[in-house]
Computed example of a mutant assay.
Amino acid sequence: MSDEHSPLIPASYDIVWSIVTVLIIALTIVALVTLARSARRLTATQALIWTVVVLFIPFLGPAAWLTIGRGGVPVERT
């Protein structure tokens, strides 16, 4: 069998998209962890909506939670 190299799509393209994919997955995980930690301060509806946004809008959902959503949640002082 021949080498499965495509002259139209360079190997660097695959590498870049793999890195972007890993970064988006990491951003989503970080957003879900911070959302879970903030869930006590959110209503059930707010937590559900933010979870759906984070999961179903790949880059913008987690970025929105980390910038807008988390900032709107009052911080508990201990």
Rank of each mutant, 00 (worst) to 15 (best):
V73K: 12
G69V: 01
M1W: 03
M1N: 11
I24D: 14
I19T: 04
I25Y: 11
L8Y: 07
E76I: 14
I57P: 01
V52K: 01
F56P: 00
I68W: 07
I25P: 01
I25S: 05
F59L: 10
M1A: 13
S2R: 10
I29D: 08
D14R: 13
L8M: 11
A26C: 08
F59A: 08
G61I: 13
L8I: 01
V52E: 00
T21C: 08
V33M: 14
F59K: 04
V54R: 04
S38K: 09
A11R: 05
I68P: 02
A11Q: 07
R40K: 12
L23G: 04
G69C: 01
I9L: 12
A47H: 07
D14L: 11
V33T: 08
F56T: 11
P62Q: 07
P62D: 06
P62H: 04
A26K: 03
S18N: 09
L55V: 12
A26H: 06
L66G: 03
S38L: 01
T51W: 01
E76T: 14
I57V: 15
S2A: 13
S12L: 15
V52P: 03
G72Q: 07
L66N: 03
L8P: 00
F59V: 06
S38G: 00
E76M: 05
T28H: 13
V73I: 15
V54Y: 10
W50C: 02
V22C: 03
L48S: 07
R37F: 10
P10K: 06
G72W: 11
T51N: 02
G61L: 13
M1F: 11
S18R: 12
R41P: 00
A64L: 05
L35I: 02
V33G: 02
L27M: 11
R70E: 09
P7A: 03
T28P: 00
E76A: 12
V54I: 15
V16C: 14
I9H: 13
L42M: 08
